[in-house]
Amino acid sequence: MVMALHSRLSQRAHAPELLERANLVKTLQLTDLCLFTEARYTRNPAMADCFAPFQDHPTALEHFPSGSFVTPPTMRVHEHSP
């Protein structure tokens, strides 16, 4: 009960900050959250290729720890690599 109340109150209290962040996303035309900065495909997973972790060279192995958290982008409607 206390958790639910705290959650509701926090959501209300954090609403202006959330709006501020959303405005920043709009102004800077951002596409990703800044969660993992160690590799391109973990910094911007939405913009990465589906094969991103293995793109550096043939038989390249995924070696960034955050790569084990970040799943490849979901199958895109117009995904192709000319």
Partner: peptide, 14 residues
């Protein structure tokens, strides 16, 4: 950028 925006702006240089 304010610390409240860190989730999107932490590593940004505009």
């Amino acid at each position: 950028y304010p610390s409240s925006s860190e989730l999107i702006s932490s590593d940004l240089i505009v």
